[in-house]
Amino acid sequence: MSILYAFLVGGALCVPAQILIDRTKLTPARILVLYVTLGVILGALGLYQTLRDAVGCGVSVPLIGFGGVIAEGVKKAIDEEAFLGIFKGPLTAAAVGTSAALVFGYLTALIFNGKPHKM
């Protein structure tokens, strides 16, 4: 059942981005910034955690999840380390995703060459 929810919620989260791409001048990069920021806000309000319990990857896989874990990480770091946690939290929470993308990105560049663009 949660797989179906993940499909429906994950898919639904992509639709506003598609509307923004097609009907406004917003570039994909700006839209992703919006999603991450929205994720941080949802995480700060505690809504992200509630959503994740309900639909799992439906909310954690879209970039909202990236923002959500940043908010979670910040909260945890401040609970443990007070003021310094403000700076430790964001990147600690984002560490796995970012490092994985960087490492796989580097390895991919080592192995593959760019393909010609086709229509």
Partner: peptide, 12 residues
């Protein structure tokens, strides 16, 4: 919707 949902369902 289909592709985004599909990726999330795969993840789930």
């Amino acid at each position: 919707f289909l592709f985004g949902g599909g990726i999330c369902a795969f993840g789930e």
